[in-house]
Design a protein around this nucleic acid. Structure first.
Lengths: 228, 228
DNA sequence: GTAACCAATTTTGGCGCCAATTTCTATACC
DNA sequence: GGTATAGAAATTGGCGCCAAAATTGGTTAC
């Protein structure tokens, strides 16, 4: 029952999988507001997908906690409450700092150069890019950084966790000062890796995560559980 | 709103949700051997479920990495390789030790008593119970222990992670010596909590997780990814 | 005797239809 | 005038059917 690997191309559900990712990105990017009801018909047209693919994708997103399912009413974008957001941040802090030493250990000169380039790309977009560009550049930087860790499970979990918190571009950087703060920290992280200083990377990572926590506190608590 | 509001018991997909849990338990318990192909018709009859529920549950389990999906061939029980098992253990180590202090902080006298009772239940089953009974008693103990942590996200992740590793009862405790080792550690954990000694609980938790690593096969503990 | 090939059966997976439920709208009643 | 009620429209979600694909089993050629 177990063997029989055939040399067949491993296509891991390209259709549904892609749709889940696309929808997840759109939710993260703020295309769908938190609390918003996702009507299947709209999704069908927007993504040019069959009804069943939409349903499946919604189920997957519900399992990922990005949307919530209410039995005979449909699916709506999940609004993480403050407590949950804080808890997610805490877990991220634990895991990302724990990964720091292996990131430092695994980084080659080429990796460091690439990281620097990504940080620079982010820096360049501060002046010329849109907020969405910045958001994606930031994602790219952190993806590369995280990928240096040796523990793939840890990477997966952190990545999933990242998508769980309230990280819509607008929410994430309210002021230019915050953006530039993030930017500086990116470069410092690269320097820490280049210097082989795991401790410094740990501290910087912690600060970087906690910084977004502070941003949240600054903004006034609005909108309850969406809907309405 | 209109008329009178219904009790609206929070039923979070009771049908499918239950099926996912049941199948997950069966996979964990070793009812389905690793690598085994899960035919939809068999599952239909075994769980007395509709075809569509089975399909949905399989999708969810695939997302949880308990089964793998091969496009036109079906779903088979995922066999975690050694590397992945090691990585899962490492993440568990990071998170469970990180949770130790909040577990100690939150535990009331009643909690400690209940934990002791669960540990005792495990101890009793060493002589009189089956391996499956032991497995479930162990789960119950650790569930209660973990639930004392204040970070619910962390609890969820660890719980999901627990299901991911190779934890079939037979695999988990090969010898009676190992079982009794686990048993002793349970009581020591309770004592550590009762004494309010978070450091001790951390160490015991680490040992407890690493112990199962040793059981699998004598392998060098991979690089510590840094502590937390 | 082995290997390849073809037919038959089994299994997966997609699609559309329709029932159950909810939400919206208009009407009547207090 | 506001509210409850009934009917209509819209939406979700379940179910069965059928085609595509894979596995199995048997047969034939070498």
């Amino acid at each position: 029952m177990r063997g029989h690997l055939r040399p067949m191309s491993v296509k891991a559900d390209p259709v549904t999988g892609n749709l889940v990712d696309r929808m997840a990105r759109d939710i993260q990017a703020g295309v769908f507001a938190p609390g918003m009801w996702l009507k299947q018909i709209d999704l069908e047209t927007r993504y040019e997908a069959k009804r069943m693919e939409v349903r499946r994708a919604l189920d997957q997103l519900a399992l990922k906690r990005l949307v919530r399912h209410v039995p005979n009413r449909g699916y709506h974008v999940h609004t993480p409450d403050d407590r949950q957001a804080e808890e997610v941040r805490e877990v991220r802090l634990i895991l990302e700092t724990a990964a720091a030493s292996s990131v430092v250990a695994n980084a080659t000169a080429a990796d460091i150069a690439e990281l620097h380039a990504l940080a620079q790309h982010f820096a360049d977009l501060i002046l010329e890019g849109t907020l969405l560009d910045l958001y994606e550049a930031n994602i790219a930087f952190h993806a590369k950084l995280l990928a240096l860790g040796s523990n793939r499970e840890l990477i997966n979990i952190v990545w999933e966790l990242r998508g769980r918190g309230p990280s819509a571009p607008v929410t994430q950087w309210k002021t230019r000062a915050r953006i530039e703060q993030s930017n500086r920290e990116h470069f410092r992280m690269v320097e820490a890796i280049a210097a082989g200083d795991a401790g410094a990377l740990r501290r910087l990572t912690a600060d970087h995560i906690l910084q977004t926590a502070l941003q949240m506190e600054e903004r006034q608590p609005a909108q309850g559980d969406g809907g309405a």
